[in-house]
């Protein structure tokens, strides 16, 4: 795989975050399917978040590839959610009659995380003070993470 077609898969708790950007070639799209499915098996992921915020163009072939990825991931027990589709791309797909059936699409990456049951828990200042005190006293803190599932 050359640098141009490098697929970025970021492990995020039990999910995979796959940001797509620029001009996604057919080769890149095919590599994406292979890489993501392998990572689902290897990392035992239950969710795939494909973020389209940086994608320039989404044509019928790329849509079909994403649908194929979603279906295959589902067979492996993982749910796929698309996020960040630009308005002009959504309008173009609608005009072409492409519906992306069977794929959950949401507006933002935050919504995609929410769809996977990952939500943000805001800590109060009081909690932060407790955390500092516990650290100073050498205690551990299980609720260190800002996100909760």
């Amino acid at each position: 795989m050359d640098d141009i077609n490098y697929v970025t898969c970021i492990p995020l708790w039990d999910c995979l975050l796959v940001p797509l950007h620029g001009d996604v070639s057919d080769t890149h799209a095919d590599e994406l399917v292979t890489e993501v499915l392998e990572r689902i098996q290897r990392d035992e992921c239950f969710g795939v978040l494909v973020d389209l915020s940086g994608v320039w163009t989404l044509d019928s072939h790329l849509c079909a590839t994403l649908a194929r990825l979603s279906l295959a991931a589902k067979m492996m027990g993982a749910k796929t959610v698309l996020s960040g589709m630009k308005p002009e791309i959504a309008m173009t797909l609608e005009a072409m009659g492409i519906e992306l059936r069977g794929i959950e699409t949401v507006a933002t990456l935050e919504d995609a995380l929410g769809s996977m049951g990952i939500t943000r828990v805001r800590r109060s200042r009081h909690d932060d003070d407790d955390l500092v005190m516990r650290s100073l006293l050498g205690g551990s803190n299980e609720s260190d993470s800002g996100a909760k599932r």
Binding site: D59, S60, H61, C63, A64, A67, T92, A95, M96, G97, I98
Partner: peptide
């Protein structure tokens, strides 16, 4: 077999 079969038809619509 490989796509959604909408390429040419979609082009006409666009």
């Amino acid at each position: 077999r490989t796509g959604l079969g909408r390429g040419l038809l979609g082009s006409r619509d666009l």
